[in-house]
């Protein structure tokens, strides 16, 4: 569906993306995972035919993006990170406008958006600028889908969205996938990587790793331990300076630790001798966030 070869883009002296190559398969949910400044938006804008790379080739549906941008826009639905609909048009006017732009009607493709649009349809006369964040998002997604695109590009759709609503949004994406749509989506939330078929972990314009979430986790290649005690923050500070420990990161109520040397029993003894109580330690499966942090320091 998407094929990128050696894409580069520079703004002034800042290299936004460097030598980016990957493919998105038909009917796949492909995630660009990384913090702000990783280059996610630049890649998406190139794929969406909105930005010309300095070098490299981007293809969508087998067509080179620059030469075929007009033809490709029929096949691409794009939801930018910033709300970009017309605030003084109503919900209904916005979706009808986008349908008309692409030479179709809301009725014709209603089946594609019905799950999402029906949630905001009761308020269809309300101006888009007066909607809550969640309603804006549902409208933007409906407008990006109304011309029945083959590829849906979503730039950080869940940023600033609470944990419950984020889960619901991913449910909607899974349903769209079942309808045959390929999805390129970006997110700074590492836990959302697990919901993609494949991910590219990105940092400062570069791809750190591309694979299925399971394979990313499998490549961690070290035993990871979760340590808990009655004073987790103080224990984290202590472990950071312990000779036994290599990488030490706070993870909610646990500290995730990999070992430099020795066995895990040494660490337990050390902690107990230092006065930490209720020390518990167990080997765990790493998360994508563990892997991301490991790749960052390498």
């Amino acid at each position: 569906m998407v094929r990128l070869n050696n894409l580069c883009k520079t703004y002034g002296t800042t290299k936004a993306i460097e030598d980016i190559s990957f493919e998105v398969n038909e009917n796949e949910i492909f995630g660009l995972i990384g913090p702000d400044g990783a280059g996610k938006t630049t890649i998406m804008q190139i794929v969406a035919t909105l930005l010309v790379p300095d070098s490299g080739i981007a293809e969508v549906c087998g067509m080179e993006v620059n030469a075929n941008f007009k033809a490709l826009r029929k096949h691409i639905g794009y939801m930018p990170g910033k709300f970009s609909l017309y605030p003084d048009l109503s919900i209904e006017e916005n979706i009808e406008f986008f349908a008309a732009l692409f030479g179709t009607t809301v009725q014709e493709n209603y089946h594609l958006v019905s799950d999402i649009y029906s949630q905001i349809e009761p308020f269809k006369d309300r101006p888009a600028g007066k909607l809550s964040g969640g309603m804006k998002q549902k409208l933007a997604l409906s407008c990006a889908l109304i011309h029945k695109p083959k590829l849906l590009i979503l730039d950080e759709p869940t940023t600033g969205v609470d944990a419950v609503s984020r889960k619901e949004f991913w449910g909607m994406l899974k349903n769209l996938q079942k309808k045959g749509i390929s999805i390129l989506v970006s997110t700074p939330y590492m836990d959302e990587a697990a919901l993609c078929d494949r991910v590219a972990l990105m940092q400062s314009g570069k791809i750190l790793q591309i694979d299925t979430p399971q394979a990313v986790v499998n490549s961690f290649n070290e035993v990871l331990y979760a340590v808990t005690s009655d004073k987790v923050y103080k224990m984290k500070e202590y472990l950071k300076h312990s000779n036994y420990c290599k990488n030490v990161h706070l993870f909610g109520q646990e500290v995730h630790v990999t070992l430099n040397t020795g066995v895990i029993d040494n660490v337990v003894t050390e902690l107990k001798n230092t006065g930490f109580s209720n020390v518990e330690i167990k080997p765990i499966n790493p998360t994508v966030e563990d892997c991301f942090m490991k790749l960052m320091v390498q």
């Binding site: 940092q203 990161h249 942090m293």
Partner: peptide
């Protein structure tokens, strides 16, 4: 108010060191 939104995971943790 959401001070760590969009921040990388290592810096996010350093931010909480500052908070502490």
């Amino acid at each position: 108010d959401e001070p760590t939104g969009g921040v990388d995971p290592i810096t996010r943790r350093q931010f909480w060191d500052l908070i502490n």
